[in-house]
Design a protein around this nucleic acid. Structure first.
Lengths: 207, 207, 207, 207
DNA sequence: CATGAATGAGGTTTCATTCAT
DNA sequence: CATGAATGAAACCTCATTCAT
């Protein structure tokens, strides 16, 4: 969806621009994000952005598509989705998120997308090309293996899963902010909370 | 937090203005919301808004405070919180939401607040005055009555609850949009999904 | 020039309003002075100002007229102009200014008038009714008594006198600001500078 | 203090903009001066002004700095300050002012600066960088040469000098306004008044 | 293709003045 | 007459987008 010009750029320049945009979007939201600042941080001229993308909107949408690609690529380096069910996936997800400092911002950006209703549809469509059936497959895996309840349809389960996973992801991020060197005790606390999260996701809050 | 002038206005005028603002914010988000349009829809002059509120931001924050008050008032007309646990509450919550056509927008606005990071803190602070310990109390009730698991602390449970309830609330709203007259079948579908939601919340998605 | 309504007010209320206006004008200049603040500080309603004066401009002009009246009245309580020449007058002027704490602001206001070119003409005209030939008379006195040089016409002398007196007046005010209790030394310094000022005025800076 | 963008502009464009601003400020004062009009008269877009300067205030302050630079440059083309005393300087000053039709407005602007109390400090600071010790040096020259009295300190003398010179400058300007072709008689009148001014400055009005 | 200056529509905010009570 | 809410014109300033070099 970006112009040819952009795709012909060297990969590292493309990445510099997209990360700069993602940084700005995450920091300020879509409306307050300034093309000028994105350009400046990427060390390109403001006008150049318009050689690459139709407008701000298209840049945003492409960030979504690119960001998702990046995350999946990273994940897949660490694990094979095919034979995992959704709980294992989350466990890995959070562990991997922890390992990906550079991409923290990309993850935050993914969470931002839902919050821009006017852009959501376009971005989601773009993301669907990449992420599409990914989640559903994990749920199917779970159902087949008998770890996910089968009395509720995939769609509703996915909604539940996404909500909980996202919020817990944010919580983890909150706890990790500003922590560079973690004490043994901190590490254990996070590990404990982490186990609890997974347990709630599986078993709910009722008893 | 609004100026004295606003508080001296007749109640119905105050409400007209706030609902107009909420409508605009929900429709366009904070940045794209135009004071001029808010004023026009409320049948007042643009300048008047600035007799009432310091600026757009203060208007937004006060909408949050007022909105929550309105919702709580409505809820409390229908049910007594004191002797309910959190599941019963949710059950009633959704039922009541269904009954409150006029306030649909206020509910959407409440969901919007989290999506405006720069305003979130101020709004949350204002809302806390109203909503504060409400949720925690419901969880305590549940733990005391033995319907909520006690092996996990209130804080994490609240986070989980909020995430799921909010997302399911949005889902319900999505289904209801544009439905004025509901067929018997539609009604049953919603009832069914609703029961399922409650079940997931209680028992999680695992088995 | 104000409306009848204003002139029918009790004297102390008139004074309260005018002093409030003068305070605001001195503090902020004509443009940034707010009618609302003037009214608030005078303990009257904003609208009332418009019962008294056509508009902001007329209020300003009347402040000039009133202020000059007040100053002259104060001066005349302390000295008889008729038999003084211009140097004696200045000597007294500065001494009296020192004695009039309450009217410091009125004096500052008089100095402000020249700085509002667009209002100057109207204000000057109003002031002329009061102050008019005052200065000229003092110069004539001086010429008659032989203390003022006669080789230069009154007009140019007046211009010179006003410029120097005003600037020295501001300088005095600057030195006095924030001084409530004056030490013997400070008092002597001012007295000395004062004598010098008068000397320069009389004898110029040449030698 | 302006943005880089401005300084990279061609000199004649910079000048066009600054003269347009000075014109507007002189005509209307700081508050009533409209950025839109400044831009229009300079043949640039309103927004461009904001590419060049942070805001109206910064534009004003830079006008002060630039204006003083221009005047000094012009003066220095006509005379060498180093070996002049303050009276000769004034003599030349007024003569040169007469010769500088194009810069009449710049001179008026310099006089305006004192009248904007809120901007005075910043502008003065900017001007000090340029004009700084200029006046003091002239006074020192005079004292050394024996043309300026030595019994009074430089500071007070400078205040006196500035007051008189400024006012006489304004008077000269007043007389010259609207005069394009001067009759012999007019010229002689001015010359006469001029000589008188210098005499008053030197010898005061006393006798 | 890169650059960064130029543009101007559009929105927020201010406040003198009016007007209904 | 007093009050203070209502009005809306007017001005500053922002920034996405265009365009000339």
């Amino acid at each position: 969806m970006p112009k040819e010009t952009f795709l012909r750029l060297r990969d590292d320049k493309q990445e510099r621009i997209l990360r700069s945009a993602i940084h700005e979007f995450v920091e300020n939201g879509f409306d307050r994000a300034k093309i000028g600042d994105i350009a400046k941080n990427a060390n390109v001229a403001t006008g150049s952005i318009y050689q690459y993308f139709q407008d701000k909107r298209e840049l945003f949408v492409y960030c979504a598509e690119w960001g998702l690609k990046v995350l999946f690529k990273k994940f897949n380096e660490h694990m094979n989705i095919a034979d995992k069910d959704i709980f294992e996936y989350l466990e890995d997800y959070l562990a991997i998120v922890k390992a990906m400092d550079k991409d923290r911002e990309v993850i935050l950006f993914m969470q931002l997308i839902e919050k821009e209703p006017s852009l959501r549809d376009d971005s989601m469509k773009a993301m669907y090309n990449v992420g599409g059936e990914h989640g559903k497959k994990l749920i199917e895996n779970g159902k087949r293996r008998g770890t996910v309840r089968t009395d509720i349809d995939d769609d509703l389960l996915m909604e539940y899963y996404t909500a909980v996973a996202e919020r817990f992801g944010m919580r983890i991020n909150r706890h990790w902010d500003f922590i560079t060197e973690m004490t043994e005790e901190q590490s254990q606390n996070i590990q404990k909370e982490f186990t609890q999260m997974l347990d709630i996701l599986k078993n709910g809050m009722g008893c």
